[in-house]
């Protein structure tokens, strides 16, 4: 009667009664487990898959005159991601306007990621080297801004950066400048705002890998004649690389598609992917175009994540 164990391999062809019973038990257990998954599956379907399917469908349709779509197949929106039709000859020409938006978005997201990394790396190192019972407090402090409404935080940054803002007033009073600096509505303002918003997303994975870092390896580095900078470059950074990559991805992805911060702090002067998508659904009334851009962005992000999973995760598992 030892065969009641569910994972014992069944060797005989004929199943005895307890084995049959255990199979029935297994099926019941499986059903119960699937029931536990049901709420999540329901939410993902309603709030994730269904809207995504609609977006996918819209991207292959024609725009209606006053917003919405005409349910007729058209690949135009996808072609427009890379090409535009010449008004007269109808031939396909490179869509340079979009290219510059892509380039600008990638650059801004890159700047944001670098800025967040530059601030987040020492911060995570600091937290990881505190006494264990203090670390959670520091992490908690890092996440506090996350609890404040994004729009309010963005307005707060505007108050600091604008011509009569805190920063300019201080600089003027100190006599460092005579006329207010143009701080707001610049690329710097945007990446500053983005880096501030997504800093916790950088710090968390970085901290997670730094906490696992064996600081005896740092000592070994010093012992073997590595200066502080060399220890950082040759020992610490290679060892926390999975954290750096994960943090950078988590920062880069929302930054490249961000709408609120880029439009508020950038002043809408220079178009970015987020603002471009919003414009297609708004003033441009080209829903298929907006859908295609949004999906294109998503596909690129997924490809990047896939490459990351293949390379970095595979390598860190080897350890």
């Amino acid at each position: 009667m030892a065969a009641t164990s569910s994972d014992a391999p069944v060797q005989e062809t004929g199943l005895s009664r307890p084995e049959l019973a255990s199979r029935a038990n297994d099926r019941a257990a499986m059903r119960r487990r699937l029931m536990l998954l049901a709420p999540a599956v329901l939410i993902i379907t309603i709030c994730g898959l269904a809207p995504l399917s609609i977006v996918l469908a819209y991207s292959w349709m024609q725009p209606a005159e006053y917003a919405g779509v005409i349910p007729q197949f058209s690949p135009d929106a996808w072609i427009n991601l890379a090409f535009e039709r010449d008004l007269f000859s109808d031939e396909l020409l490179p869509n340079f306007a979009y290219y510059s938006i892509y380039a600008r978005s990638i650059m801004m997201a890159g700047m944001t990621t670098l800025l967040a990394l530059a601030v987040g790396f020492p911060t995570s190192y600091f937290i990881a080297t505190r006494a264990p019972h203090r670390r959670n407090l520091w992490l908690f402090l890092i996440t506090i801004p996350f609890w404040t409404n994004l729009l309010i935080r963005t307005f707060a940054i505007m108050l600091i950066l604008r011509d009569e803002g805190v920063l300019n007033v201080i600089l003027l009073k100190l006599g460092i400048i005579d006329t207010p600096l143009q701080l707001l509505f610049t690329n710097w303002a945007v990446s500053y705002g983005l880096a501030y918003a997504y800093l916790p997303l950088m710090v968390m994975p970085l901290y997670a890998s730094m906490e696992k870092l064996d600081f005896r390896l740092v000592e070994a580095g010093y012992d073997l004649y590595a200066s502080r900078f060399q220890v950082l470059r040759r020992v610490i950074i290679p060892l926390v690389k999975p954290g750096i990559v994960a943090g950078s991805i988590l920062c880069f992805i929302p930054a490249i598609g961000d709408y609120v911060i880029t439009s508020q702090l950038g002043g809408g002067k220079r178009m970015m992917l987020g603002t471009l998508i919003a414009m297609q659904f708004g003033p441009a009334r080209n829903w298929p175009q907006g859908s295609a851009i949004a999906l294109g962005l998503m596909i690129i992000v997924l490809i990047a994540l896939f490459i990351y999973a293949k390379k970095v995760v595979a390598r860190s598992n080897m350890r």
């Binding site: 005896r216 390896l217 070994a220 580095g221 012992d223 073997l224 004649y225 590595a226």
Partner: peptide, 15 residues
């Protein structure tokens, strides 16, 4: 890193 002294650590501390 400026001492001509090297250590074999208890845990080896290999990279």
């Amino acid at each position: 890193f400026k001492r001509q002294v090297n250590t074999v650590f208890q845990s080896y501390a290999l990279f």
